[in-house]
Design a protein around this nucleic acid. Structure first.
Lengths: 249, 249
DNA sequence: GCAAATAATGCCGTTTTATGCATTTTTTAT
DNA sequence: ATAAAAAATGCATAAAACGGCATTATTTGC
């Protein structure tokens, strides 16, 4: 079989099955694995496929191009995301909610982080999915169109069975008197369950939402371990929360 | 043998077999390999064939199986997706797997379709999410990086509690003798469970995968209700499946 | 028809390419 | 952590390509 012919065959197989294994191709075409490896290398350089350990993947299936929607107050959220990402260590189990701040966090994660992320937020899951060493556990249930997160009894039940090391929550309103509040009943149910399950609760919010109030109460400040905003931890606006026993970063 | 005559013979052979080997031609026509090489060189310059190390390939072989093949397969999948989309009526409960064909189906859905889609495939969910009147139920579990679908005991258990009207499966190999087969053990478990739960099973595949075999068996043909390919339903290749009692579209 | 010019072909030494094998290094899975 | 699998590296070999050159056909002009 001619080299070119063989390479055409490989590309065809990749496009057909989305992936190929080097050893399978080797026995199939009856050439050494070295030859296959060199073929994959060349085809990879030509951009015809993506070479990975043990085989190759089709370009189309892997490079999922989801339009990364613009995030309001992007810079502030990136600051927050980086502070939050620093708290995550290899091997941790991490539960996250949804919202743009959490997506910013997902994007700020070091590419080689080895951890397990649990979430029902589709946009967040898409981000986690792109990290090779992150295991993703999807919380299933009915998908809420507004928040793009799964909400419902199933999701609650599943979260109750977990004991993650950290829980990251994007919050919509926080106030010394009323604690954390939100606007959507179902989302509040979910957040409450997440808070109860987790060993450590970390709330993320831009300072705009500090000292604001929403109709439905999530929890008191005592349930929160860490609060992250884009402001420096010693900013006067945050002092009341430090006084309430929260670690403010 | 005249030069012109010889070159015409070579072109003829290339068009007939899609490839020729220099040494074969040399012994066949009984001229030196140098002559053959020079012939191939000239024919290559004239665009009659593509010269490669050791011989030559027909132009059609190259162009049909390389860049346009992708578009070709894409078009086929769109044809399949449209046939499949026609089966979906307002109000239905629909369970879908993962894979590129299913994503093509998700994209082919009418924008105002009112139905409930259940899936563990993240790319498919992302598509469903964009339809305002589609309710999405996410099947949760550990996310498989390769297939971008949730796999595991939880997913299986959840699916067993459902009785969807339709189940759309993208399949990787189908054969009259062995039924549907696939390459990944966990994916097979999932597909089996989906098939058992559903009232009607619809398999989607490009015709290239018809009459092919993979190592792990999913189910017999008897479990399938409808088979959709890009070919017309009366194509001779599909007759055996019609004989097996499957509705072929 | 014949000689000169031109083209085609085969041969040969050199260079390039393709491939497999052995060894070391890296990655992956358990 | 450790063992197995795969990748990278270097090397050897064989096949093929290349370019020049000699020989043989073929054409062309007279």
């Amino acid at each position: 079989m001619l080299k070119r012919e063989r390479q055409e065959y490989i590309v065809h197989q990749v496009n057909l099955h989305n992936k190929v294994l080097s050893n399978a191709l080797s026995t199939e075409i009856d050439v050494s694995e070295d030859t296959i490896r060199r073929d994959l290398q060349e085809l990879n350089e030509k951009g015809k496929l993506i070479k990975v350990h043990g085989g190759a993947l089709s370009h189309s299936f892997n490079s999922s191009s989801y339009p990364s929607q613009k995030i309001y107050a992007q810079n502030n959220k990136r600051v927050i995301a980086e502070k939050a990402a620093n708290l995550i260590k290899d091997g941790m189990f991490i539960l996250t909610g949804g919202g743009t701040t959490i997506i910013a966090l997902a994007r700020a994660l070091p590419i080689n982080l080895t951890a397990t992320f649990i979430s029902g937020s589709i946009p967040a899951i898409v981000e986690y999915m792109h990290h090779p060493n992150i295991e993703v556990i999807v919380i299933g249930d009915k998908l809420s169109k507004n928040s793009k997160i799964t909400l419902g009894a199933d999701a609650l039940a599943r979260i109750k069975t977990l004991k993650p090391d950290l829980c990251f929550l994007g919050i919509n309103a926080i106030d010394v008197q009323h604690g954390i509040t939100d606007s959507d009943w179902d989302v509040v149910q979910l957040k409450q369950t997440m808070i109860e399950s987790s060993q450590k609760v970390i709330c993320l919010t831009i300072s705009e939402k500090i000292n604001t109030l929403q109709p439905v109460k999530v929890c008191d400040l005592t349930k929160i371990d860490i609060l992250i905003t884009e402001l420096p931890g010693n900013h006067p606006m945050l002092q009341p929360y430090i006084d309430a026993g929260i670690t403010v970063i």
